[in-house]
Simulated assay, not measured.
Amino acid sequence: MTISCWKPSVEGDDGDVKGKVDGLLWYKDLGNHLYGEFSMAVIQANSSLEDHSQLESGPLSSDYLGPQGTFVGVYDGHGGPAASKFVNENLFSNFKTGFAAEEQGVSEKVIKRAFSATEDDFLSLVKKQWLTKPEMASSGTCCLAGIISNGMLYVANAGDSRAVLGRVKKGTKETLAVQLSAEHNVNIETERHDVRSKHPYDPQIVVMKHSVWRVKGIIQVSRSIGDAYLKKAEFNREPLAQKFRLPETFFKPILSSEPSISIHKIQPADQFLIFASDGLWEHLSNQAAVNIVSNNPRNGIARRLVKAALKEAAKKREIRLSDLQKIEQGVRRHFHDDITVIVVYLNRKLIDNSSLCSSPLSIKGGRHVNF
């Protein structure tokens, strides 16, 4: 372990650590994290922004005695922004608290405990506000987190957001896309089989509805934080809206909050990471996104990825991008989802410097925007 240095937080290179706003777009074109540079962008499509995100760089432990690192989170909400906002405000602090208690460094155990604690805290909030805000029971969020520390990368995912690595192919200048996260969407055949195997006595656990596979005919993702109405039967009743209520009770959670976790030792060929909600991947392939990042300047690269996705969305509906950009939030959702992108560049020299010490940085995508 290294000893973390605590210094006052400072603003980013552009003098605006909170990011900037252009209509429905929030962005921070370029900033510095512990191991290199990063770029963030968020475009709203829903009536209220349901995507939340964050990048934290500095001490990973609440007591500031453990090693430093960079934490990246993308939280793609559904059923309103309550769950994604809550995760954005609590997951990293739960991770830091659990990390301090463990003392042996970042681990799968620490990450899973952070997810579990955040889930428990949100369900407790739903219970507390059940009679006054029953709609919170139908709010949930996909949750993608990445932690870089001591030359290692940990990727945890519950839902269908995605993390992709850009890695230079040996002996060439070509940058290949390597998907790092498993997706939990029942439109993927292997995920349908997994859900059915966990609920063998429910023939209706996954059904086709409106030409899409859905868990209980309602939701496509099989893992999330929140969605209390599909976790505990006590929330699947009045006063919750009828459309969310199942005709029969259930005795075990229908959705899971446990993330899939992958662990990677960062290699010299690893150039950058793309963390994004499925709004991006709906329109761009892994390789297309990696090609854009590897072939363009770093400054504003997250915005460039968002624009590329919007171009594809407009093309599919046979309209011009300029016309799509005039459509207001809410109506815009018929053309594309909220899209969040965080590009994290990896500087090998900084990664190899185990005694590295820098000012803490915390930035939350779109949080300071009141759309």
Rank of each mutant, 00 (worst) to 15 (best):
D16M: 04
D16N: 10
D16I: 12
D16E: 06
V17R: 08
V17A: 12
V17G: 04
V17F: 12
V17L: 10
V17Y: 05
V17C: 05
K18N: 11
K18Y: 14
K18H: 14
K18I: 11
K18P: 00
K18G: 07
G19R: 13
G19V: 13
G19F: 10
G19T: 10
K20L: 09
K20G: 03
K20I: 02
K20D: 06
K20P: 00
K20R: 14
K20C: 02
V21Q: 14
V21G: 00
V21C: 10
V21F: 03
D22V: 02
D22M: 07
D22C: 07
D22H: 10
G23A: 01
G23Q: 03
G23I: 00
G23F: 00
L24E: 02
L24R: 07
L24K: 05
L24A: 11
L24D: 15
L25G: 04
L25R: 09
L25N: 02
L25F: 07
W26C: 10
W26Q: 14
W26H: 13
Y27C: 05
Y27W: 13
Y27S: 13
Y27P: 01
Y27I: 00
K28T: 09
K28I: 13
K28A: 06
D29L: 05
D29I: 04
L30N: 04
L30M: 11
L30D: 01
L30A: 08
L30K: 15
L30S: 09
G31Y: 08
G31F: 11
G31T: 12
G31K: 03
N32A: 13
N32L: 14
N32V: 15
N32S: 13
H33D: 06
H33N: 09
L34W: 00
Y35S: 11
G36N: 05
G36A: 12
G36C: 13
G36T: 07
E37Y: 13
E37Q: 15
E37V: 07
E37L: 08
F38W: 09
F38D: 12
S39P: 07
S39Y: 10
M40Q: 13
M40R: 11
M40F: 09
M40P: 01
A41L: 02
A41H: 02
A41K: 01
A41Y: 01
A41G: 01
A41D: 03
A41P: 04
V42F: 01
V42P: 00
V42K: 00
V42H: 01
I43D: 06
I43F: 10
Q44A: 03
Q44H: 02
Q44Y: 02
Q44E: 15
Q44G: 04
Q44V: 04
A45F: 02
A45I: 04
A45S: 15
A45N: 08
A45Q: 08
A45Y: 04
A45G: 13
N46G: 11
N46D: 12
N46T: 09
N46K: 08
S47D: 09
S47W: 02
S47M: 03
S48C: 10
S48F: 05
S48D: 11
S48P: 01
S48A: 15
S48Q: 14
S48H: 07
S48W: 03
S48L: 12
E50W: 03
E50M: 06
E50H: 10
E50Y: 04
D51K: 02
D51N: 11
D51I: 03
D51R: 07
